[in-house]
Design a protein around this nucleic acid. Sequence first.
DNA 1: CATGAATGAGGTTTCATTCAT
DNA 2: GATGAATGAAACCTCATTCAT
Lengths: 235, 235, 235, 235
Amino acid sequence: MPRKAKVRRTGRPRLDGGKAPQTRERILRCAIREFAQQGFRGGRVERIVDDAGVNLRLIYHYFGGKQELYLACLERVFVELRRAEHALELRAMPPLDAMRKLIDFTFDHLSRHPEFIGMVRSENQLGSKGVLRRSRLVRTLTAPLLVIIEDLLERGCRDGVFRGDVDAVQFFITLQALATVHIANRSTLSAILDANLADPTWLKARRRHGHEVLFSYLSPPRAVKRERRTLSGER
Amino acid sequence: MPRKAKVRRTGRPRLDGGKAPQTRERILRCAIREFAQQGFRGGRVERIVDDAGVNLRLIYHYFGGKQELYLACLERVFVELRRAEHALELRAMPPLDAMRKLIDFTFDHLSRHPEFIGMVRSENQLGSKGVLRRSRLVRTLTAPLLVIIEDLLERGCRDGVFRGDVDAVQFFITLQALATVHIANRSTLSAILDANLADPTWLKARRRHGHEVLFSYLSPPRAVKRERRTLSGER
Amino acid sequence: MPRKAKVRRTGRPRLDGGKAPQTRERILRCAIREFAQQGFRGGRVERIVDDAGVNLRLIYHYFGGKQELYLACLERVFVELRRAEHALELRAMPPLDAMRKLIDFTFDHLSRHPEFIGMVRSENQLGSKGVLRRSRLVRTLTAPLLVIIEDLLERGCRDGVFRGDVDAVQFFITLQALATVHIANRSTLSAILDANLADPTWLKARRRHGHEVLFSYLSPPRAVKRERRTLSGER
Amino acid sequence: MPRKAKVRRTGRPRLDGGKAPQTRERILRCAIREFAQQGFRGGRVERIVDDAGVNLRLIYHYFGGKQELYLACLERVFVELRRAEHALELRAMPPLDAMRKLIDFTFDHLSRHPEFIGMVRSENQLGSKGVLRRSRLVRTLTAPLLVIIEDLLERGCRDGVFRGDVDAVQFFITLQALATVHIANRSTLSAILDANLADPTWLKARRRHGHEVLFSYLSPPRAVKRERRTLSGER
DNA sequence: CATGAATGAGGTTTCATTCAT
DNA sequence: GATGAATGAAACCTCATTCAT
């Protein structure tokens, strides 16, 4: 990815904002849709410009190339998720409420924004050729969230509503897993289970199930601690 | 996909065994690797034949085309997983042991066979253009597994080691989710968490976490059932 | 090239000096660098404006188009070379000194101004599509130089330090050849000779060699003229 | 240049040679013409395939891409020149004859094969982006020629027909310079000298001039050695 | 006089597939 | 049954240039 997005030297910043940002934004939105649905390789530049109603050249003008555009899309969906998470103001809430809110939000956001899952899938498909590593932005945005989760778990432990040995990173991953799996694998699961996973009722049941799993795990061991240990113990 | 695979137009089955089956198998293995890593769209027919060291035309001889080859790959990885699951003979074991074995197996198999995850990802990426629906084979293979899980959950409930309200399908999905998420999203998680998810120690910790989450959920409610209800209740 | 440069359509010359001439000059310098390095076809208008830090449209304002800009570059490097040659004031010097000075100057100027060689290469690459023929300026500037060389050769012959049968044009070409070859072909010669032709020591040795070759040729035949005739005779 | 030319795995080598080599050869010949005339950047793949009357895809099939094709062209013209030089069998001839033959050959070959000069020009234009460095072949072919020239100069010195202090590499470069300059710079020289350098008579005169210059240089200093030293001395 | 925004034309490359023995 | 050779379609990308203020 040696090409650089053409940050146009403008003599003076335009007071009206110009219409370039709008065009750029339109391209970005259409590109997110395309890449999320088709992946990076399957995504067609021409489809993007057709959808956006702009000239094909502008992609190269504003972003530098398909790959750079793709990275911009990737960053955008992450930024939107993280921004929304931060807007929840979880630190100001009692841990149980905060946790409930975080889980609800995660299920709902991912449910309403399949483009996030699509972009993540595409990036993981690219594997070592992926571009997310190069994005400092995304890493920077995730760190504070983990801090918030850690704080939340600790407060809950102090209050006696959460068990004490929960690893924030593992929990974060598990939350993603539960909220994502049925959307990311809708096609295959629908096919092998012969069910319709897009059905709203099903989605609600799934979210309830997620709550149960997560809170079962989080709730502090009561009384017969020993037995549970044995139960979940591995060889 | 209007074209049909023109597999083996020759009337008489070869008695000598020939080298054809081996060649076919080699193509299939290389194709699985290719499609799992690159997806259906990103997968290159030429790369497959290069890897397999066979003539390009053989793909069309044996499978009919890229798409048919892809479906064969998809079915193959599902068959291998389901066969191995059935080989566990879970029905003959006490429910706790059986469950532990199933979880371990799932984590380990997916860990050792990333090509399954790759194929599944590819198929989900294709969405409505996917081909899995057309495979009766895969559906046929999954149904018995769900029956086994149901049986297992019921026996566990009767024995008082599992809670009684567990839905087999939800549990199945959650198990997949926990055992898959860190592999399917290795790239993105590594990038945003700045960690190495391929590290064996990390993988072990992840499996332990999975056990804890699943058994926390499965274990029957003790004493203050009410509080838990409240805890995990949704708005 | 049907279009004409629409240079300075404004009627009144700017009294304040303005910054226009500076801008024009900056464009020209960057364009020379670009065209010399990349050739006319390889030269990118956008790279030029990026280097010069000016607005793209100014190229069309000041020069009319890529081709016109290119011609301006070509003329400029020729003008600079010829001006410097005339500044040597060779007519006022004894022929031997003048010749030495001319040779030294030629080697050094071309060595320090690879952009001249680059522009010349580009123009020759264009062949019949080249634009130099259309420049009366360049032709006008070269004629006096040939007169000077002729004068110099004649004076040297009269003084008995040069042979009498030297053709000025051939000599001029040979001088160019010797002073140019190692710069114009630096890449290929370095590659096939496995040597570094950019090394200052090497460049000095080359210049010395050039002197020897040229003065061997210029020096009047001594004693056994016949033998030399035989020696260099062609079939 | 990561792409590899597709060396087709053929089961058994075809006895008839197949027609692929012919096609490949035809592409190569047309590509040499195109690149020599237009340079690498100016050279159009489509023009090449049109000239060769082959499908555009075959370029990528046989060579891997434009750049690889270009390198193949470069190597080819060098190989042809070096082969012809070796065929002269200079080692078997008396030094004076051998030298005369070498000079004649060089002038004539370059005159009759302007594509060599074109390819060399293009490669030098590419500068650091050139590909010749990567060709071991060309380097390997040139070394023996330099040995032959060294041998020739030494024998000539022993026979008393050449001076003793001639550097083979410098001489090689100078020979190239004299035989090349008027062809490589035909456009610009024609323009500034207002002459027709393609005229056969002119070319003959040029070759004679080359002989004179080179033999003047090579001939051993006679009698007044001191004076010559002074003459060609540098500051 | 200057500039931000946009564009049509044409280039290279990729890809699965078929032709013709 | 197998293979060498070839290909049409479509993708990505580049470039000088113009539109509209």
